[in-house]
Amino acid sequence: MKLSRSGHRPVIPGFRIAMGFAVLYMSLLMLIPLSMLALRAGQSSWDELWATFTSARTLAAYRLSLGGALIAATVNTVFGLIIAWVLVRYRFPGRRLLDTLVDLPFALPTAVAGISLTAIYAPNGILGGLLEKGGIQAAYSPLGIVIAMTFVSLPFVIRTTQPVLQDIDQEIEEAAATLGASRWQAFRRVIFPSIMPAVIAGFAMAFARAVGEYGSVVFISGNMPGRTEIVPLLIVTRLEEYNYAGATSVALALLILSFVMLLVINLLQAWARRSAPV
């Protein structure tokens, strides 16, 4: 509906200068530096790249990063739905404060998040001590990584779902209720389908953010190769061993992954926009 009017608009000026600047800036700041990755990776043979990429350690790091991000995004989806629902549907003291605080992970430096989460979940921290008594090690284990990833990707699902939830026509729900649907049925049949695209988009964004996270995870993870070593850390380690080929090949794979994920997110958003309730 927004694009329908775009047919005849020769009058508005500034296309060249705006587009020119935007493209120039993006090329200089992003595309040329990013192409360095391909250039560096291109210096080693395909077999070498493949060997680095399929080495047990790289694969373990990818498994951990992707798996951890998947769990973090799932946790955030479940709780994000509840939080979004609560923030939109209920009035209770402190609601506005909670609503504001949800954005904290966007604004808080990741290093600060890392050290405070470590302080909490280390065996001598408040929660770490409790968990330790229950035989669970939080910090310096994959669980710690998931916690940090959950923290940094917490706002996404909430922030994508909230507005959609806000706009669902309540009359439809009420109609469903008068037609004899239980609350749960109304939720499942009426609300769930309409927030689904937003939830998926939020999930995908949370996942993408969690996969690339470095600053907070590096403090709380044990950094053990094969066990608690995430992909960004592996890249840094390779870099510090002067192993540029190794670093770039791992980084290139992560870059391609990010790009594909983004395309999927953008497609999902387009789909969400099209199927959003009018």
């Binding site: 990013l34 993408a208 992560l254 990010s258 953008n266």
Partner: peptide
Amino acid sequence: SLLITLIDLPFSISPVIAGMIFVLL
């Protein structure tokens, strides 16, 4: 959509890679 995806890219690129490409350059 390609342009928008490119603009989005730094959101999901690991910050480590962002630093590394400048070292490489």
